[in-house]
């Protein structure tokens, strides 16, 4: 009993506790204000842009996110057979063009200066192309086969073009989707590959 009395004596009074809470709240507020002033919040704009890009890609094809991710990976593998591909540098998009949808997959290829066979003016000549006419035709054919296994596409609609810049080369590929809106929903269910959000 005496022990309990002793403990009660040592314990802070309610008024003291109130003061302590008040003090800590004030400190928290000051801390929060300092944090607000100095902490740089990550801008939400970029986040919105990348989320929308992914979600709109799905809307345009009525394909699931998984199926799109799977398709993207297949396109990377396919392009890697023809050009050196950095998988982070692949931009895939599906956009309405006239009455059909167009799928584009563009990749930026950065080559070391010694690898770039520029002539004296820094311009590239036909012989310096990454893709010879023969290889371009092969890439077109493989694009049709790969994308055609995911969605109906217009035959012979695949286009491949490369453009040389002073620092890099862009390889542009595109093909027309025959009926993007009416994509077979049953086919979507069969595709399941894990999707990392924000990948596109």
């Amino acid at each position: 009993m005496d022990d309990l009395k002793e403990i009660a004596k040592k314990a802070p009074s309610i008024a003291e506790l109130r003061d302590k809470v008040k003090q800590s709240k004030t400190l928290d507020n000051v801390g929060g204000m300092v944090k607000q002033v100095f902490e740089r919040k990550e801008a939400s704009r970029q986040n919105a842009h990348s989320r929308l890009k992914a979600v709109m890609l799905q809307d345009r094809t009525t394909m699931t996110a998984d199926a799109l991710m799977d398709l993207r990976n297949h396109i990377i593998v396919l392009l890697a057979n023809f050009v050196p591909v950095d998988r982070r540098r692949l931009e895939m998009d599906i956009k309405q063009s006239g009455e059909s949808l167009v799928l584009t997959a563009n990749v930026r290829v950065d080559l070391e200066p010694q690898e770039r066979m520029a002539n004296g003016n820094g311009d590239f000549e036909e012989r310096d192309w990454l893709l010879s006419p023969k290889r371009t035709a092969a890439l077109r054919r493989d694009m049709l086969d790969t994308v055609g296994s995911y969605m109906p596409i217009f035959p012979d609609s695949a286009k491949v073009r490369e453009e040389h810049f002073s620092t890099h080369i862009m390889v542009y590929t595109s093909l027309r989707i025959a009926d993007g809106v009416g994509f077979d929903e049953n086919a979507q269910q069969e595709m399941s590959v894990s999707f990392r959000s924000g990948e596109f």
């Binding site: 919105a48 929308l52 809307d59 345009r60 309405q96 006239g98 809106v181």
Partner: peptide
């Protein structure tokens, strides 16, 4: 300039273009 409005605008644009 918000995500919901832009997403819906994209759907509408798709229909408009498909309508010719």
């Amino acid at each position: 300039p918000d995500v919901a409005a832009i997403r819906d605008a994209d759907r509408v644009i798709g229909f408009i273009e498909a309508a010719g």
